[in-house]
């Protein structure tokens, strides 16, 4: 009963979410039908569709998407892994907190793209630089989530561990980390989001155009489209960024719901 009514409302939610985009597309198409679009500002929906078809046919769109995805996931994996370890350490140990916490809190205040000048001096403008930047972006939310999760384990659960004479290790694996899982997963979701946004920025801003030739990925695709005033490609690129970003987000949120059934019940 409840399961099916839940499913109905889920489907309802999806339809409701589609109302606004659908309305925009219709307005767009109507404006185009009455030739009200200035092609320097907005091209017609059909033109975007044709460009999409061509992009798939010549492999440029799948290629750019794959490059961006790979880069984002690499940076995310590295940044989130380091963030998890550092966050757990800071969350557990007062000494680690004293050592790292002030520095991390300060560094976090620096906008991600403000690192670009420094990183390009250190790592050049190639792949290493981009992945480092993305990893750094992914690091902070993960570290913060893991730290908060380990630090805020409810006292009643800690007392269970004390009453059962659990060793430090058993307390960590059976009480602290499981209790921190929801916060860690939130950190994971946020860090993926930052990694995705950061990847685009890195591709768009670093090593494209004049200096080092073309990079690859959706960011470079968009940079080139802008360079050549290809409004159709700009729109297509933006659309793809949004679609894949949302898909990634949903995927991770769906997985994390499954991991913590006691949270969603």
């Amino acid at each position: 009963m409840t399961a099916s009514s839940n499913r109905v409302s889920q489907a309802g939610l999806i339809w409701r979410a589609l109302v606004l985009p659908a309305a925009l597309i219709i307005i767009w198409a109507v404006l185009d039908a009455f030739s009200l679009l200035n092609s320097n500002i907005l091209v017609s929906p059909t033109k975007v569709l044709v460009t999409a078809y061509q992009g798939f046919a010549d492999g440029s769109i799948p290629g750019a998407t794959a490059a961006t995805l790979l880069r984002a996931l690499t940076g995310w994996t590295i940044g989130a892994s380091v963030g998890l370890v550092v966050g757990v350490l800071i969350g557990l140990s007062g000494i680690a907190r004293g050592l790292f916490d002030p520095s991390i809190s300060s560094l976090r205040q620096i906008a991600l793209f403000a690192w670009i000048p420094l990183f390009s001096a250190w790592f050049g403008n190639g792949e290493i630089m981009k992945v480092t930047l993305i990893s750094l972006g992914a690091f902070f939310p993960m570290a913060l989530g893991a730290q908060a999760g380990c630090q805020n384990v409810p006292a009643p659960f800690r007392e269970v561990g004390r009453a059962l004479e659990l060793s430090r290790f058993a307390t960590l694996t059976k009480i602290i980390l499981p209790a921190a899982v929801p916060a860690i997963l939130t950190g994971l979701e946020l860090s993926l989001n930052i990694a995705w946004l950061g990847t685009f920025g890195a591709e768009y801003l670093i090593g494209t155009g004049y200096i080092n030739g073309m990079g690859d990925g959706l960011g470079a695709y968009l940079a080139a489209a802008r360079e050549y005033a290809r409004m159709d490609q700009v729109l297509l690129g933006v659309l793809f960024l949004a679609l894949i970003g949302v898909a990634l987000d949903r995927l991770v949120i769906g997985l994390s719901r499954r991991l913590i059934p006691w949270r969603t019940a």
Binding site: E159, V160, L164, S167, K174, A179
Partner: peptide
Amino acid sequence: VFQDHRLLPWFSVEKNIGLSLHS
């Protein structure tokens, strides 16, 4: 045995009880 049962929400009944035999 606490007034608020304090079972760990991430463990099954079996594992919750087994935890007190861990040490």
